[in-house]
């Protein structure tokens, strides 16, 4: 569960099929694929006929990816080697898509954030993207000082991959940037260097 007192923290209500959608486009990673398997099992035949999946398989062997593809059968699955490749493919599809397309995202928060972001760039309201968080709690963090992004953050604080400042990862989240905010944790006393603890595994 993702819990926080900060209200900019996004909420992921879980995948549910839209029976009226003309086309269901689903992006997931290995962990999120389990949620998609459940979605497909729950949804009717019509939904399945209109659905296709982009699977980000950067942390899966080719055997694991093939096994997932089989589990999602008969839904058409495209395997992408990285999140960036999947998002590029998604953008390509969205640029020529029609109203009636419904977007779904399942997996880690950076994946969901990137899908919602690509949707918004193509006129899809973030509220109409159906999302479910699965697997790792790792985060994408933007350093408020140098604006650089640090990917796959599991500790708090974390060292900025660009300027090297030690950042407190706040629950404050920007949908536009698809990232959490990182603020220098020891600005008031640079000699104070709290040990990073694993918080987002």
């Amino acid at each position: 569960m993702l819990v926080s007192g900060i209200k900019s923290r996004p909420v992921y209500p879980g995948l549910s099929p839209d029976p009226n959608a003309r086309r269901n486009l689903i992006v997931c990673d290995r962990a999120g694929a389990e949620a998609v398997v459940e979605l497909v099992a729950r949804a009717g035949e019509d939904f399945v006929k209109r659905a296709s999946v982009i699977l980000v398989a950067d942390d899966a062997s080719s055997e694991e990816a093939a096994a997932l593809q089989k589990k999602l059968d008969p839904v058409h699955v495209e395997v992408a080697c990285s999140l960036d490749a999947a998002i590029a493919q998604l953008r390509e599809i969205l640029s020529g898509a029609s109203m009636g397309l419904r977007l779904y995202a399942a997996g880690s928060e950076p994946l969901i954030g990137s899908v919602v972001q690509a949707g918004a760039e193509n006129f899809i309201d973030p509220l109409s993207v159906r999302t479910e968080h699965r697997g790792s709690l790792m985060r994408r963090v933007q350093c408020v000082h140098c604006k650089g992004m640090t990917e796959n953050v599991v500790t708090n604080p974390v060292k900025c991959a660009h300027c090297g400042l030690l950042l407190l990862v706040r629950d404050h989240y920007s949908r536009r940037l698809a990232a959490f905010q990182g603020v220098c944790i020891n600005a008031e006393d640079p000699s104070d260097s709290p040990e990073p603890k694993v918080e987002f595994q």
């Binding site: 209200k7 900019s8 923290r9 905010q181």
Partner: peptide, 18 residues
């Protein structure tokens, strides 16, 4: 930060207020 908060809704940009 405007750069971080731009595009947020009323509840989101007030998120950090306790």
């Amino acid at each position: 930060s405007l750069d971080f908060d731009i595009g947020m809704n009323f509840f989101e940009w007030h998120g950090p207020v306790p």
